[in-house]
Design a protein around this nucleic acid. Structure first.
Length: 442
DNA sequence: ATCGGCTCGCGCAA
DNA sequence: TGCGCGAAGCCGAT
């Protein structure tokens, strides 16, 4: 999941192990056509990261090979074939989606040790023994441990360069052949690449620089205002591991100190709330379920299970953005076109799906489906936690009302009052009509 | 524009 | 055992 040569604890650990064993390191990356909702958008973003990762790994003396599994019939044993010639396999620990299952099933198929390293979090997931109840319970623990962990990852130094030839199945990905490689895969070609976000390390670094120089100072006050473009837009890059939370946190802190401004609100979201999400996913037997909602939320939702809903929309109506609410439709269009909804509007988006679905569980399924399929920042611990927050996870009870019970409600009037919703609608309409995002970072 | 009430449960101080 | 307070709420009073 952490697909980068920089600031990567898993890579550092692999190199240290290899140096101890007096062996070279080979970086292996792959994508199949069989993960859920495999489509042009997700494939393109992932493949756009490959050329730069490959260059930077090779520059470090680390071998690099990439396997593109185009059909379900192609061989699916490249990892095991590589491992047959290796002394150990090192990967990263990740608590959701395919990686979570793979890290359970892979070790049993290997004759060599299989190590998982926490390369996603700043304070390692393992530092928290139990599932935390809310942000306020994990916050003091994280702040207590931060001085120990908020430090740059030492540069990796391999003692033996990898000199072998890439395997016959290695796929050389270039900026020029990505479109044709994606077209050659047996995947869903109906979900087009994002109009706003290109994948890869260079794009991730561009977004970080844009954020530090033009947005961070406004983040505290304007992060909930989509037309202000005051957020980092880094979530797709963090999800695909093209950039790491640790290096982003260090860069934000350094920039804030150098320019005498506060990065507190940004660091709160990047560290405390993100790591609360990883803590939830790690300790949940099934993170994509209601199983771990707080009891007060389960009880209150249960008491309101049979409340009348009006209107009720089908999954297809939600998917096409065909509700009566122009703000909700705009948020859905942002998901369809950009592959990411502005953070504040995503909460509203989720709350309204609850309000306009036949049952709470159906609402949950719809939200998970739409994010798994369309969101570049989907399938991430953050995504599932954000969806479940709409049902009360990590939140507190509020005044009881229909359908939601004591789960927090969000209103159309509130969004109108608190944000420039007309500006947001205009921006998304422009995106839909022209297919061009004027805010795209080049 | 700002404030308290709504409501529950966790962590911490006593 | 009591108290403060919480991931982005709403509503009504001032």
């Amino acid at each position: 999941m952490n697909r980068r040569a920089e600031s990567n604890h898993a890579l550092l650990w692999a190199v240290e192990l290899a140096n101890e064993l007096r062996l070279p390191v080979l970086c292996y990356e792959a994508v199949t056509c069989s993960y859920p909702y495999a489509n042009d958008r997700l494939h393109t973003f992932l493949l756009q990261g490959v050329p730069e990762t490959s260059r930077r790994m090779r520059r470090l003396g680390i071998g690099y090979c990439f396997y593109l599994r185009r059909t379900a019939q192609d061989a699916n044993d490249t990892l095991y074939r590589l491992a047959a010639d290796a002394s150990a396999v090192v990967t990263d620990d990740y608590p959701t989606f395919v990686a979570r299952q793979h890290n359970v099933s892979a070790p049993g198929k290997l004759a060599v040790p299989y190590y998982v390293v926490d390369a996603s979090c700043i304070v390692p997931m393992a530092a928290h023994e139990k599932r935390e109840y809310a942000a306020y319970t994990i916050r003091p623990k994280i702040h207590r441990m931060l001085p120990e962990y908020l430090k740059p990852v030492p540069p990796v130094e391999v003692e033996r360069d990898y000199t072998g030839q890439p395997p016959a199945w290695h796929c050389e990905v270039t900026d020029e052949n990505i479109a044709s490689l994606v077209a050659s895969c047996e995947i869903d070609h109906s979900v087009a690449p994002s109009v706003s976000y290109g994948g890869g390390r260079l794009m991730a670094e561009q977004h970080l620089h844009q954020f530090l120089n033009f947005r961070l100072a406004r983040y505290g006050k304007e992060r909930n205002e989509p037309s202000a473009h005051a957020t980092s837009d880094l979530s797709p890059y963090l999800h695909f591991g093209h950039i790491g939370a640790l290096e982003v946190a260090l860069a934000a802190r350094a920039h804030a100190e150098a320019h005498n401004l506060a990065a507190d609100e940004f660091l709160e979201e990047l560290i405390v709330r993100r790591e609360l999400a990883f803590n939830y996913a790690r300790h949940a037997a099934n993170p994509v379920s209601f199983d771990h909602l707080p009891q007060w939320a389960l009880d209150t939702l249960d008491r309101h299970a049979k409340d009348a809903r009006e209107p009720v929309y089908t999954r297809a109506q939600f998917e096409r953005g065909e509700t009566h609410d122009p703000l909700w439709n705009a948020a859905q269009q942002e998901l369809l076109l950009r592959g990411k909804i502005h953070g504040y509007y995503r909460m509203y988006w989720g709350k309204k799906i609850i309000e306009w679905s036949g049952t709470h569980r159906e609402a949950f399924e719809t939200m998970v489906y739409l994010h798994d399929r369309y969101a570049l920042d989907g399938r991430d611990p953050n995504t599932y936690t954000n969806i479940l927050w709409c049902f009360g996870l990590h939140d507190r009870p509020w005044q009881e009302r229909p359908i939601f019970g004591m789960v927090r409600f969000m209103s159309y009037d509130g969004m109108r009052r608190k944000t420039n919703s007309d500006g947001y609608r205009r921006e998304i309409d422009h995106l839909r009509l022209t297919g061009v995002d004027p805010f795209r970072v080049q």
